[in-house]
Amino acid sequence: MARAAVKTKMPKTIAPDVLEDMFYHIVLARALDDRMWILNRQGRAPVVYSSNGHEAAQVASAFALDRGRDWVVPYYRDLALVVAMGMTPREIFLHLLARRDDPNSGGRQMPAHWGLKRLNILTSGSVVTTQMLHAAGLALAAKRREEDTVAVAYFGEGSTSQGEFHEAMNIAAVWKLPVIYFNENNGYAISVPQRKQMAVADVAARAEGYGMPGVVVDGNDPVKVYEVMAAAVARARRGEGPTLVEAKTYRFVPHSSDDDDTAYRSREEVAEHKKSDPVITFETTLRELGLLDDAKVADIRARVKAQVDDATRFAEKAPDPDPETLLKHVYYGD
């Protein structure tokens, strides 16, 4: 590569090995995601919810946290987030296939309903937006104990139409909670485009009405997302309260494996967005910075493929939940 062509500056905020690590997790998440769709189309995984297209935003947001100490409160879109938080490919595929040892739910929940205490990933249900209040509550407890941990809630732009979005934003601001609301704005709620969801251009614009900062960031740019998140995290740790971050992103695949997105968006539109696919653009950036070359990329791709293959084999051989466990864990001690 001609060094003279370098147009990207090395970010001061992120160490080179961290940039590489972010790239690794972005690639790993995409590879897991691609494999899930293959398994689905082969009839081996009944349903898939994807983070395909959202990886940069999710991974970079996680990297701005003290992972393992801070809390994340995900929704079904957040595969790449939980990968970055440390959930292993095996654990992810045990969940996908609803196996006994799925650490998220023991095979009880649909795929992509994340939750793992070991990693401070709060369990998530299917009802959108309820999690925004849970994040505020986690933050309330941390604040009450005078810890400097933060909680981050993730949600789509469609979910901001729910009343609980308003309630969460308001109570978090009034109580100055160390919480960050991380909106993944991909422009669609299943088939419904943003313009039918809200009469403003930016979700972040609403922050002002609650008395907290609102920041729009390019969700395809991991460095920018990291910087915006790092600032929000620092503010929360200082006790100055919540921030609303809006990452503009796009999902490259249908809402789920049961959706057909050709019904509501053109192939041209999807192709246009794929030009800024973070898996490709971030690789280009890191090559320009001299952090990646062909050999390194090949090595990363080989490691990722080995992990995905291993996880697939492992989960497919894993036992199903025992029907006897149906009645367990309704109450403590069951």
Partner: peptide, 19 residues
């Protein structure tokens, strides 16, 4: 604030986080 979902929803998070 005057918001029942917020009262209970935050209590869920607070309970999970040790209160």
């Amino acid at each position: 604030p005057l918001a029942e979902a917020a009262i209970v929803g935050t209590a869920i998070g607070a309970a999970i986080n040790g209160l």
